[in-house]
């Protein structure tokens, strides 16, 4: 089971739910790696929903594990892409042809959910109407508050900003607009005194 129990945190930290079928004609589903399992669960709850489903899936490290299963659900469309970032233009184009009433389901890593949500809200669906479910890796996208660069797949606290090289501690404060958590210099008041990195949530 790849669902992670996130510890309780501050109000700006996103909380993910469990995907469920919703009324509507068109269902846009975006998932990476183990997020496919959440889509499969929705299909099991309401198989005939899939005739109106448009799936964008990024296997990442999971290879073909879930692809055949997703095909078997009989979605109206299934796109398997090498990465989320390669598919952003395609997603934006899909959204320009979409109408209000579109149901959106996001599943997988926080990075995928945050970035896809940003595209959908920019297109005009309020964020609280978008369903999310976390599955798989708990790595974070972090914005360095100093240089504004985003460091992907952060699993330790502290970590090194991949742009400016500062040592940053990991905050739970999260921005939907940036789809990232905030990283702040950890040794500003005692330069060089950087604790050993510890894995997140350990």
């Amino acid at each position: 089971m790849t669902k992670f129990q996130f510890p309780e945190s501050i109000r700006s930290r996103p909380i993910y739910g469990t995907l469920e079928p919703r009324p509507g004609k068109v269902h846009l589903m975006i998932a990476d790696a183990e997020g496919a399992e959440a889509l499969i669960d929705v299909a099991q709850a309401k198989p005939d929903l899939m005739a109106g489903a448009n799936i964008m899936y990024f296997p990442k490290g999971s290879g073909d594990t879930f692809v055949t299963q997703l095909q078997a659900l009989g979605p109206a469309q299934l796109y398997v892409g090498p990465s989320y970032s390669a598919s952003v233009a395609r997603l934006r184009r899909t959204l320009t042809d979409s109408h209000m009433g579109l149901q959106v389901y996001l599943a997988g890593t926080e990075g995928l959910i945050g970035q896809a949500m940003l595209e959908v809200t920019t297109a005009g669906i309020p964020h609280s109407a978008i369903q999310t479910e976390h599955r798989g890796s708990v790595a974070r996208r972090m914005q360095c508050v100093h240089c504004k660069g985003i460091t992907e797949d952060v699993m330790t606290d502290p970590f090194v900003c991949s742009h400016c090289g500062l040592n940053l501690f990991v905050r739970d404060h999260y921005s939907r607009r940036l789809a990232a958590f905030q990283g702040v210099c950890i040794d500003a008041e005692d330069p060089g005194n950087v604790p050993d990195p510890v894995e997140l949530y350990s």
Binding site: R22, P23, G24, K25, M100, G101, P126, S128, A129
Partner: peptide, 10 residues
């Protein structure tokens, strides 16, 4: 609107 999938906030 709700039946057709419109978000409450819209």
């Amino acid at each position: 609107a709700a039946d057709l999938g419109w978000p409450r906030e819209a």
